[in-house]
Design a binder for these strands. Structure first.
Length: 305
DNA sequence: AAAACATGCAACCGCCAGCCA
DNA sequence: GTGGCTGGCGGTTGCATGTTT
């Protein structure tokens, strides 16, 4: 059986709301509230609109506490930071910005902020509370495939989340990593890119990382748009606890080894603390796309956060 | 001045989770 | 326990407006 439509599509109006419709909806909700039933609201209010449409119009436009346009630099930075932490969870991000709606934030991100971030005009600030005190990484959750915009500041260790926290996915394919330089003065050589075991970063009380990683490439040159294919079999292992059931770190050789785990994006406290001397600089590389190259095992959910 | 192209944003669509009968 | 309904969400579309050619 097919899904029942949420409303009688033949008898509802679609498209932009007129001022009259806005006034009717606002007046009705001001007087009666939403009644906890959006589906019934348009009939009661005398609107030829779908309940979902009424809800959206109210939440995104007519609510009295809505602010439109004019995002501040502070809001830009907060959105950038939150996006790096949780990906496109717009409703959560919007909840941190008084007066902003998820639709507004989403539109703003898609049309302006993404470009602004890529241009390096705003940063991503790791949360201090996420830091692991010794030589562990700073945690920033993110979305594999859609992240990571890397702050130029203090560098790093990218980690792409695999979305699942309870059951780390097995990756039966390799990963490809594309690094985007955003300056003309980029390094042209990557020294010793390799996968490294990061089990040493796990806390003593909890075996945070458990990985079996094979070296995929000994070296590679990299330009302003370069790719490193990690085509060896990679398995994710872990203890199945929330957070850090498994991790994978790629040492790119330019100062920003990053790790994959099911918890999110990770930065080491300082690249120098873990980086061998051969590392160049990460400063020219602000963006990386990490993608699975092949079929994932069932349960492998990379990129779907 | 007009056409083509780019941008911004409101609104829609489809999916999913939770609630309830 | 099951299935339908609803609210909520993120992705996408399409139109209006602005800019460039």
């Amino acid at each position: 059986m097919g899904r029942a439509p949420c409303c009688d599509k033949a008898n509802v109006k679609k498209g932009p709301w007129s001022p009259e419709e806005d006034a009717i909806l606002k007046s009705y909700i001001d007087t009666h509230g939403t009644g906890g039933n959006w589906m019934a609201l348009p009939t009661k209010a005398g609107l030829r609109r779908c309940g979902k449409s009424c809800r959206l119009r109210w939440l995104n436009y007519l609510r009295p506490d809505i602010r439109h346009g004019g995002f501040t630099d502070e809001e830009d930075n907060l959105i950038g930071t939150l996006y790096s932490q949780m990906g496109s969870r717009w409703s959560v991000i919007a909840s941190k910005l008084p007066g902003r709606t998820d639709n507004d934030v989403k539109n703003y991100w898609n049309t302006k902020l993404k470009k602004k971030l890529l241009a390096g005009n705003i940063g991503v600030t790791p949360s201090k509370s996420d830091k692991i005190p010794t030589n562990g990484p700073t945690h920033i959750s993110s979305t594999l495939g859609s992240l990571p915009y890397v702050s130029k500041a203090e560098t790093h260790f990218l980690v792409i989340s695999a979305s699942q926290t309870e059951n780390p996915p097995a990756v039966s394919s390799g990963l490809s990593a594309n690094f985007h330089s955003l300056t003309s003065d980029h390094p042209t050589q990557v020294y010793c890119p390799q996968l490294i075991d990061v089990s040493e970063f796990g806390s003593s009380s909890k075996k945070d990382f458990g990985i079996n990683v094979s070296l995929s490439q000994e070296s590679s040159s990299i330009s302003n748009w370069s790719s490193i294919d990690l085509d060896k079999y990679v398995s994710w292992a872990g203890n199945g606890e929330i957070y850090d059931p498994g991790a994978l770190v790629l040492d790119t050789g330019f100062g920003a080894p990053y790790g994959l785990n099911s918890g999110g994006l990770w930065f080491p406290l300082k690249a120098s603390e873990i980086a061998p001397p051969c590392y160049a600089t990460m400063d020219d590389f602000l963006h990386a796309d990490i993608k699975p190259q092949g079929v994932l095992d069932p349960g492998g959910v990379i990129g779907q956060y």
